[in-house]
Simulated scan of single mutants.
Amino acid sequence: MSPNVAAPSPRALVRPPAATLARGEVTHVVRTPVDVALAAEQWRGYVDALAQADFEIIEVAADDTLADSVFVEDAVVILGRVAVLTSPGALSRRAEIAGVEAVIAGLGLVERRIDLPGTLDGGDVLKIGATVYVGRGGRTNAEGIRQLTAIAADEGFDLVTVPVTRVLHLKSAVTALPDGTVIGHAPLVEHPELFDRFLEVPEETGAAVIVLAPDAVLMAASAPLTAVLFAEMGYRVVTVDISEFEKLEGCVTCLSVRIR
C-alpha cells in the first residue's frame, strides 16, 4: 500500500441481542436470571466502544427466534480474505448462520464453510499472526477441525489443536495481547505449553481481550485486577460492562467479529 493511502478502517460485525436472550444455552455455569433490557443497554455500550476505536460497525439483523445469536463470533471465522461460515456445535444455533451469511456476502470476502458432520464454533478459534489455535471440546469436533485445517492451509495459516474441557470455548480460556502474548486464568488453561508465550491473569473474565490498536485493548469491567496488570504493561485499557452476557458464558470476543 502506498504510504499516501490510508489503511482501511477495521470492521466489526455485530448482532443485537434477541428478546429471548435469557433462554440462551449454558454449559459450564449455573443458569441465573438475565436482565434482557440491561443486556441491550450493555450491548449498545460495547458497540459504542468499538466505534470509538474507529471500527466500522456492520450489523446483522436481530432475530428473536435465535436466543444466542448476539454471540455472533461463533458464526463466522475470518482468515485474511476468507470468511469461513461455521457449523455450530449446538443444534439450537445452526440457524444463526443464514443471517450472518447474508451480510458477509456484501463484504467482498471469499466464502468457505464448515459442513456437517463437522462442527466448529468461532469462539474456539484464536488467530495469532500466521498461527490458528483451535479448541477441540464440546462444540468443535475433529471433523470440523480437519475442514478448517484445509481452509487455513490454503490461506497460509498453520493450525494447532488445543484440548478444551474446562470452559465452553478456547477463547473462554485464552486470548492474546497485541504483542501476541497469550493470556489466561491458569485454572482454566489446560495446556499453556502449547503457546509460545503465556501470561497468567488473576481473574477468569480477564482472559478475554479484543485488540483495539497496537497499544490498546478492550476487556470486561468485571476484571479490574487484570485491567491494572495490562495498564502497568503499558496498554491503554478500555472496559465495558457485559455482566448479563457473562451469565451465558459470553465474553468481549463473543459479541463481535473483527475484520481487519
Rank of each mutant, 00 (worst) to 15 (best):
residue 202 P to Q: 15
residue 118 G to S: 08
residue 168 L to Q: 12
residue 160 V to H: 04
residue 106 G to E: 05
residue 242 I to T: 08
residue 77 V to A: 02
residue 85 L to M: 14
residue 157 F to H: 11
residue 18 A to M: 04
residue 246 E to I: 00
residue 32 T to L: 12
residue 161 T to W: 06
residue 62 A to S: 15
residue 149 T to M: 02
residue 194 L to W: 10
residue 248 L to C: 00
residue 206 G to H: 02
residue 156 G to S: 11
residue 248 L to F: 07
residue 81 R to G: 12
residue 98 A to H: 11
residue 122 G to R: 00
residue 20 T to M: 00
residue 157 F to Q: 05
residue 2 S to W: 09
residue 114 I to P: 04
residue 79 L to E: 06
residue 160 V to R: 12
residue 240 V to K: 00
residue 125 V to A: 03
residue 174 V to M: 11
residue 58 I to E: 01
residue 82 V to S: 15
residue 148 L to D: 02
residue 71 F to Q: 05
residue 124 D to K: 11
residue 227 A to C: 13
residue 69 S to N: 06
residue 153 A to V: 10
residue 60 V to A: 01
residue 161 T to E: 14
residue 2 S to Q: 10
residue 190 E to Y: 12
residue 92 S to T: 14
residue 56 E to P: 10
residue 14 V to N: 04
residue 201 V to I: 04
residue 250 G to D: 03
residue 204 E to Q: 14
residue 43 W to Y: 15
residue 73 E to K: 04
residue 29 V to M: 12
residue 191 H to W: 14
residue 99 G to S: 07
residue 106 G to S: 08
residue 9 S to L: 14
residue 41 E to Y: 13
residue 229 L to P: 12
residue 196 D to P: 01
residue 256 S to M: 03
residue 201 V to Q: 07
residue 71 F to Y: 07
residue 84 V to T: 08
residue 68 D to Y: 00
residue 93 R to K: 06
residue 3 P to G: 02
residue 75 A to D: 15
residue 139 R to P: 14
residue 128 I to T: 07
residue 154 D to H: 11
residue 39 A to D: 00
residue 134 V to C: 03
residue 4 N to W: 14
residue 13 L to I: 10
residue 153 A to Q: 15
residue 137 G to I: 06
residue 197 R to F: 03
residue 68 D to I: 05
residue 45 G to K: 05
residue 144 G to S: 14
residue 24 G to I: 01
residue 223 A to P: 00
residue 173 A to N: 11
residue 94 R to F: 08
residue 134 V to P: 08
residue 139 R to D: 13
residue 128 I to C: 03
residue 170 L to Q: 08
residue 253 T to C: 10
residue 219 M to D: 07
residue 94 R to N: 03
residue 221 A to W: 06
residue 32 T to F: 02
residue 197 R to I: 02
residue 178 P to L: 03
residue 97 I to S: 02
residue 41 E to M: 14
residue 219 M to E: 05
residue 83 A to Y: 03
residue 138 G to Y: 00
residue 103 V to M: 06
residue 36 V to E: 04
residue 159 L to N: 06
residue 230 F to A: 09
residue 45 G to V: 03
